[in-house]
Design a protein around this nucleic acid. Structure first.
Ligand SMILES: [Mn+2]
Ligand SMILES: [Mn+2]
Ligand SMILES: [Zn+2]
Ligand SMILES: [Zn+2]
Lengths: 131, 131
DNA sequence: TATCAATTAGTAATAGTTACTATTATTATA
DNA sequence: TATAATAATAGTAACTATTACTAATTGATA
């Protein structure tokens, strides 16, 4: 069970670095330009494996298709509901607040918090200018 | 365009009050016991309409099916990853912190935050006792 | 009672994703 | 190097959650 770093896997990693939080099909379409034979299944499988191993991040936002992220450091995501762009925000400075929220929830629900999911949406500055 | 509060709609509302943050099919299965002819489409449509009008809440947690909530007040959700139970937590006391997070994000991304989605998961107290 | 829009049941269609399978590519080994 | 073992792929089928469609039903109104 030796992990083979196939050409396809490298292309997927490369696409992730070039695109901004792409969906699986965005990765697929990007690679297809230079390598038309890539299979959508291969893209999904590798993104899933990489996310599971912690090499990349899977971002589930509501009911839209999952997005993937090469940055695995702790950070938050904000999406513009006008243009769809996804913005990163370093959550370092919020660490204490987030811990406080966890503690509050543990106390009021009895659940030992192991994971939190949060994302935000609004209108980005360039979309605000346009209107 | 008179809003008719059909028998089906009432059954759906009743199911929501009796079940704990159910999915559309949980609502469907519940109603089917006493009214086998109810259509899954009707359940989906009415849940969607009620959520849109603000009469109930739609809760999207990751890639699992959407859940619905009769309580429309501001509160947070915590799910036990062992038994799947969903717990409510009044977010009143966190209001200031949440606003601070919004402000931080507006400053660091330029996006004017209009909506935030957050949910948490962990192990509930009764599941912790069992192991 | 006749009319007409709202709603329904039942089913078809869709989107996103995972599963399957035969084939190809890569590595290990005789 | 030739052969065997197995990891990964392309292509497609299947699946789940959800929405769309349509003909029939319901119920309010004139
Ligand atoms: Mn990111
Ligand atoms: Mn709730
Ligand atoms: Zn924008
Ligand atoms: Zn539990």
């Amino acid at each position: 069970m030796v992990k083979r770093y196939s050409a396809q896997k490298m292309m997927i990693k490369d696409a992730l670095m070039r695109l901004n939080h792409p969906t699986a099909s965005e990765v697929y379409e990007y690679i297809r330009k230079s390598y038309p034979n890539i299979s959508l299944g291969t893209v999904y499988r590798n993104l899933g494996l990489m996310a599971e191993s912690g090499e990349i991040l899977r971002i589930s936002m509501g009911n839209s298709p999952d997005r993937f992220d090469v940055s695995t450091n702790d950070h938050l995501h904000v999406m513009c509901r006008e243009c769809g762009q996804v913005f990163d925000a370093d959550s370092h400075k919020l660490e204490n607040m987030l811990k406080e929220i966890d503690e509050f929830l543990e106390e009021s629900t009895g659940v030992h918090i192991e994971d939190r999911t949060m994302y935000f949406s609004g209108i980005c500055s360039s979309c605000r200018e346009k209107s």
